[in-house]
């Protein structure tokens, strides 16, 4: 499985991509929403994109909106991974079309569990 990690922080991209690779994903990265759209347009469609909210050039909410407006990207699951922690922000993100939402700081366990909810864990672990 393939994941696109979108975050303006290299440290956070490393943390998320590292965790995803340990779970069996191949990963690609982008530092903002515009770069992420470019990456989507170029390679095979990933299964998952983790999306930060506050980024320069194009923020995560705009990226989510644009992706969901494009029928070619319908199979892409979008999970916000962000420090925006207000109830209203989560509502906005879901309304824009994000499938899931993980608030920073998050543990790797929490990431795994969200992926499990989405049916996107490459290895299914027994209870």
């Amino acid at each position: 499985m393939r994941a696109l990690v979108v975050d303006d922080s290299r440290a956070m991209r490393k943390i998320i991509a590292g965790a995803l690779r340990k779970l069996g994903y191949e990963t690609v990265e982008a530092a903002d929403g515009a770069e992420a759209l470019k990456v989507l347009g170029e390679g095979p469609l990933p299964d998952l994109a983790t999306v930060d909210w506050n980024m320069p050039v194009m923020d995560g909410l705009t990226f989510v909106t644009q992706v969901r407006a494009n029928r070619e990207y319908r199979a892409l699951t979008l999970m916000m991974v962000t420090t925006e922690a207000e109830h209203g922000q989560i509502v906005r993100a879901l309304a824009a079309g994000a499938h899931e939402y993980l608030i920073k700081p998050f543990t790797v366990e929490a990431l795994e569990e969200k992926l499990s909810l989405l049916g996107l864990l490459p290895e299914v672990s027994q209870a």
Binding site: D8, R10, N54, P56, E84, A85, E86
Partner: peptide, 29 residues
């Protein structure tokens, strides 16, 4: 990398602090 990491620490703490403040707008970079 050092600036980026420190910036992300501020980002994480700042975002969670922001959630305590009513009617806050987006967090700055």
């Amino acid at each position: 990398d050092v600036y980026d990491a420190l910036g992300e620490v501020a980002n994480i703490v700042g975002g969670n602090i922001k959630a305590l403040v009513p009617d806050a707008g987006p967090l700055g970079l």
